[in-house]
């Protein structure tokens, strides 16, 4: 009962069977494509909404620039660079900066020496 017989032409019954299968395949493919597109759109949609949430919150904040945060100014003046606001001070460098890749073992050694001395 193959669709493709070796005879020339096909019977009416065979034509309906083939057409039916093609139509069914097309519908199934269409549904899957729609699902795929929807999934993609939905994923972009919630990312977009979370981003909008952050930008809206930014607009509502009393202070919108890092260098105007009074607690930031205080930590520099009281602790990281006593008496002044000086990023990348020696203490800031020790506490707030790091190294990468092959430079890490040396950093670990330096930190261990620093803490032994302290």
């Amino acid at each position: 009962m193959s669709i493709f017989t070796e005879k020339d032409g096909i019977t009416r019954r065979q034509f309906f069977k083939g057409a039916g299968m093609l139509a069914f395949t097309a519908v199934v493919a269409g549904v899957f494509a729609k699902v795929g597109v929807d999934v993609f759109a939905a994923s972009d949609d919630y990312i977009q909404k979370r981003a909008e949430g952050l930008y809206t919150l930014d607009e509502q904040m009393a202070i919108r620039k890092s260098h105007e945060n009074p607690e930031i100014l205080q930590i520099y003046k009281d602790f990281l660079s006593p008496g002044e606001i000086k990023p990348v001070s020696e203490k800031a460098h020790h506490l707030l900066h790091t190294r990468y890749g092959k430079d890490i073992p040396g950093l670990i050694e330096e930190l261990a020496t620093h803490h032994d001395a302290a």
Binding site: Y55, L57, E59, M61, K65, S66, E68, N69, P70, I75
Partner: peptide
């Protein structure tokens, strides 16, 4: 160490 700005939020 709890105060933040809009710059940090984004």
């Amino acid at each position: 160490i709890g105060l933040s700005t809009g710059a940090a939020t984004i």
